[in-house]
């Protein structure tokens, strides 16, 4: 464990908690893409099946349980409890265009052709594009609530910090996982446009609104 991975995990945890609290407190999921949240629930489910087979550490196990629990709770709030506030018209990204290619790639390019490894690889590839429905929705509505931009910033920062963690681990431990690194680079690049808007607008107190 190094400082970059720790702060990456804390940033990810913050993102998940911010979103859950935003929906719970405002009793509304306006502006939130339910499709992205379903993809994240799939990412955690397929990646953390090793909860059933191996124990790494209390930290590892508890964080995985929290991620899975919060992601399913968020999906439940969006599609069940506060479904009346769900903006289905703007959440129209075709996720099958993500899941099918990612599934195919996971079967073709992986470290080991075993079920757990292919599911893990699928989860890594899916996570790199899981935010697209949310970014697409913001481009369609042309704006995002400030709390949603903080959620997105933490979500994007987490994998950026993981990239630094992988540089650190390569340099100090001689370890690298090309699949995780390439997917992590793609994932972080997808946030660049948002990062620019976040820094130039939200951090200056303005509302994030895209030129419609």
């Amino acid at each position: 464990m190094n400082i970059f991975r720790l702060f990456g995990d804390l940033s990810h945890l913050a993102a998940i908690i911010i979103l859950l609290l935003k929906i719970w407190k405002s009793r509304s999921c306006a502006g939130i893409s339910g499709k992205s949240q379903i993809l994240f629930a799939i990412v955690f489910t397929t990646r953390y099946l090793d909860l059933l087979t191996s124990f790494i550490s209390l930290y590892n196990t508890s964080m995985k349980m929290i991620y899975i629990g919060c992601s399913y709770a968020t999906v439940y709030l969006i599609y069940a409890k506060f479904r009346a506030t769900y903006d289905g018209n703007h959440d129209s990204f075709r996720v099958e265009f993500l899941i099918v290619p990612v599934g195919g790639l996971a079967v073709l390019i992986n470290h080991d052709f075993s079920l757990l490894e292919i599911l893990w690889t699928f989860s890594i590839y899916l996570e790199s594009v899981a935010i697209l429905p949310q970014l697409f929705m913001i481009s369609k509505t042309g704006e995002a609530e400030t709390i949603t931009t903080h959620y997105l910033f933490c979500q994007g920062l987490y994998r950026a910090l993981y990239l630094i963690n992988w540089i650190w681990r390569f340099y100090f431990e001689g370890f690298f996982d090309m699949i995780a690194i390439v997917a992590g680079v793609v994932q972080t690049i997808l946030y660049c446009d948002f990062f620019y808007l976040y820094v130039t607008k939200v951090l200056k107190g303005k509302k994030l609104s895209l030129p419609a």
Binding site: H12, S57, M63, H111, F175, D177
Partner: peptide, 10 residues
């Protein structure tokens, strides 16, 4: 293999 140790990451 190297990928095993990336399983200790979240």
């Amino acid at each position: 293999t190297d990928s095993q140790s990336s399983k200790d990451e979240l």
